[in-house]
Design a protein around this nucleic acid. Structure first.
Lengths: 357, 357
DNA sequence: TTGAAAGCGCTAACAA
DNA sequence: TTGTTAGCGCTTTCAA
């Protein structure tokens, strides 16, 4: 796991603490104290050392500390897909906050591979990272993750809980958000409302489906699920088959951005008018939602808030001392907000000022 | 730069190579050889060692290698803004490729801060990373970067060159792409074509503006630049003022995604019809470009290709041995492709099948 | 207030 | 084929 020989050709050798000590005419320990701002050093001595450090261009070797059992000033971030704009925003926020606290951020985009996520978490533990922010793609091996945590790597889950493990977690109120969206459609008189999406095992989607179901059943409406629409082709097929039905849906609740986009495109290809022929609300707000014709009504969640809270929690865990070590895990719930535009058939009077991502 | 004491409470102590040696009844060096797949170990001995490793749950301590002068199996990636979908795609691709080659990826989103970029590059050098992929936001301090490279951190620039430094670089043909777009507009009979954008100092934008200028002057047309449109408000102002003009532009070439989006929205707010009242082509393709009404004509560039080539170059540099060390820097140019849809006033017959990002 | 010595876990160099 | 020794650069004793 470490490169065979990293020595280039003329690797300018960085001076060590020992050389600084020699030049300053003091012991290595004194230099160490100066570097670490230990108070018990006479100002005069300190100055000598500082001068020597300056003169030699000394730089602390991070590796040595690690060997002494310290942790790298790095945090890890594992997400299912970094090219997903939502996670990209999360990553951007986390990296910034981490940097401001002196940490570098190691990012892994797992491609929804649960095994990979576990492996990378283990790898990060071995690299002595300070902490890990984790968005899982499914259920991880509890034992392995438990061992990682016990090995001293604090973990905070966000967007999805870490099942079976009592870790801190920051989650979105997916269910309530979905309920609100479906209720909204119902309040417009829709009775045949389809729920379309894919990847229904994924926690956020599963929660949204639950919200859909509960809203429907609360009004005695029959659910109409279709959870395999993840590309344009699937969307076209779905649109075509749905229109043929006797009781074709008059509205659709899309459980995620990707599905929303493809559905929109499919409707457009088939010249189905939105919202007159079919109304649509999509979970996940997106930048262009207000620009599209018609502007699409969405359920928005703030990636920035989510990331911020998660990082805050992790930092607390990392910096925890003494009595707080065993602090019981915190769960934070963040709202999802219905952003009413036009695709749902409503007049565009936002319940909340539209604020994407 | 290393955390003060990373020791939690019941930190399960990982066994060392020495303990493995004791349990296996061999010398430490033999264990080391086994770990590193050195051939000169009798299969029987090897087996004994492997058993002991298994039994103890031994894990190699990465820090020790660093101290011996090896490099961490990590690469760095510095981009101006990770929440920019283009860079998010780049990051996603790079992280994946890196992981497949055994590297972790440290990502920094600089927020277009040149000083920060330099600092982080230096920090990465100190952390003994294996290599660095860099998208600069401006002109970095050549000396400091030079020192980083000499310190043994190979750097490959992409999307923008590293000015004043002979590093490898992978770039997009921004200028040619812009020229093609403007030529296209001209071929539709447009004469008053505005070039709108912001951040004209940024390399890619600057190149695109050059392309615009050269296409215009090639046809004896007067350029009409407006390089401060970076938000909806600015876009509205621009649209309003442009319409008042005597010779209002009949077409606009937008130099970047953000401007394109806000312009689109501003035109929509002002009920300006596209393309009949004004035609538009935007540099940077985006996922929803075909969905918007009307579908927008763009100049697309492949983030994946860009990232892939850049990583390949970096890996070559990292793995370089002996005679190739001083290999002269490579420059790779990747095409930008005009994707004709409808906002430019053309019939939607793509010169190339639309393939976003 | 300062310093010398003893490692942290590993591998390169040498011996056997 | 295997093992011993001597560090890598730093910090933690403990002593001065």
């Amino acid at each position: 796991m470490v490169q065979k020989k990293g020595i280039g050709k003329s690797q300018r050798q960085t001076p060590t603490i020992r050389e600084v000590a020699r030049v300053a005419g003091v012991g290595v320990m004194t230099v160490s104290r100066v570097i670490n701002d230990h108070p018990a050093v006479k100002p005069k001595t300190k100055k000598k050392v500082l001068t020597a450090i300056q003169q030699l261009g000394y730089e602390r070797n991070e590796a040595a500390g690690l060997l002494k059992g310290q942790r790298a000033m790095m945090i890890g971030l594992i997400v299912p897909d970094l090219s997903d704009i939502f996670f990209a925003h999360c990553a951007n926020t986390i990296e910034k906050l981490a940097r401001e606290s002196g940490y570098l951020t190691l990012i892994v985009s797992s491609g929804h591979d649960v095994e990979l996520e576990t492996q990378q978490a283990e790898l990060m533990a071995r690299r002595k990272l300070s902490g890990l922010l984790l968005v899982t793609s499914g259920t991880l091996d509890v034992n392995r993750i438990q061992r990682v945590i016990e090995g001293g790597l604090p973990i905070v889950a966000f967007d999805r809980p870490l099942e079976g493990l009592g870790t801190d977690a920051v989650l979105i109120e997916n269910r309530a958000g979905a309920e609100e969206a479906v209720e909204h459609l119902i309040s417009h008189g829709h009775k045949r409302i389809a729920c379309v999406g894919f990847d229904s095992e994924a926690y956020p989607v599963a929660e949204r489906v639950k919200g859909y179901r509960s809203a429907m059943s609360a009004h005695g409406l029959r659910p109409y699920l279709s959870m395999k629409v993840d590309c344009l082709e699937a969307a076209m097929n779905w649109v075509d088959s749905a229109r043929l039905k006797q009781d074709a849906p008059t509205a659709v609740f899309s459980t995620n951005y990707r599905t929303t986009v493809h559905l929109l495109r499919a409707f457009s290809e088939r010249k189905v008018k939105i919202p007159s022929e079919v109304a649509i609300i999509g979970f996940d707000d997106f930048e262009l939602a207000p620009v599209i014709a018609p502007p699409v009504t969405t359920v928005g969640q703030s990636a920035v808030d989510l990331a911020r809270r998660a990082f805050r929690l992790l930092l607390d865990r990392i910096e925890i001392t003494g009595s707080d070590v065993g602090r019981s895990p915190e769960k934070i719930l963040l709202p999802a907000t219905l952003i009413v535009r036009e695709s749902c058939g409503a007049h565009p009077r936002s319940k909340k000022t539209a604020e994407p991502v």
